[in-house]
Amino acid sequence: MGKLVSKSWQESKLLWHIAFPAILTAVFQFSIGFVTVGFVGHIGQVELAAVTVVENVIEGFAYGVLLGMGSALETLCGQAVGAGQVSMLGVYIQRSWIICGATAVILTPTYVFTAGILRGLRQPTDIAAVAGTYTRWVIPQLFAYAANFPLQKFFQSQSKVWAMTAISGIALALHVVLNYIFLTRLGHGLVAAALIGNVTWWLIILAQFIYLVSGCFPEAWKGFSMLAFKNLAAFVKLSLASAIMLCLELWYYTAVLILVGLLKDAKLQVDVMSVCSGP
């Protein structure tokens, strides 16, 4: 019995050594949108409702698809590490970037035509109009998601997650400071909030990419390779399966928010939802 308890404790410590920083990373990155909504709430009721709808309907849809597409890398990287083929990790992350980048291009029209989509879902006209303006400015974040998820899976497969956690934590702190300066102190509006989000996300991507190519992964990362363009069809098939599974889990809140937008005094109802549940 004592041996079992000791073994369980050792396994638990090993699990939390990887899981805890991964959880912190997810919390930090999730909080970027939460902070944006919090500061935008001081601009106006319509702006708060619009950004909440964007975060949870448009970006929530894209986030779910790209997270699912990127999650295929988790399976492949785990298999490669288990088989001792660490050199394939660099090829796999490049394939994932190609697939996720192409997916982001396909999803871009949803950002461009957000106003029309929301009106089609019978959301309030003023919220749809403001949301449409905001989404056009946050298109760079869509491509940041496409780059971010493969990087996360690459690092996690090798248990190198603390650097990713530190990068996300520093970026979140900078995000708070920039929002305070430009929105609260200088009084800039919704466009400034969108641009700050773009800067924050792309700083995360840049820092993670520097870490990737810094020489910390000599076996896994050997530079860009044309092998990344081989077997893309099989990679897409696995990615789509992962995307469908994850999207079914993530989109329930999107459906709830759309239904809330149909209620009387929708701006107030959506604002309440943003405070209660976050983006």
Rank of each mutant, 00 (worst) to 15 (best):
V81R: 09
V54F: 12
Y92R: 07
T75Q: 11
G101L: 01
S87K: 12
V130R: 09
R95A: 07
G70M: 05
G68V: 12
S87Y: 10
E74H: 09
L73P: 09
R122A: 14
V86D: 12
N56K: 09
M88H: 10
L121G: 10
G101P: 09
T125H: 12
V130L: 15
V112K: 05
G90T: 02
A129V: 13
G120A: 07
I93L: 07
M88A: 14
G120N: 04
A115P: 04
C77Y: 12
V86Y: 08
R119S: 13
V112P: 05
S71Q: 05
I106G: 01
A83V: 02
S71T: 10
A80E: 09
A128Y: 08
L118W: 03
I117H: 08
M88W: 09
T110M: 13
A72E: 07
F113T: 13
G78I: 07
A72Y: 09
V65K: 04
C77W: 04
C77E: 11
A83G: 13
C77D: 10
V91R: 13
T125K: 14
I99G: 04
I127R: 06
S71F: 12
S71I: 01
Q123K: 05
S96V: 02
A80Q: 11
S96R: 04
G101N: 01
C100P: 00
A115Q: 15
Y111Q: 02
T114Y: 02
V86P: 02
E55I: 06
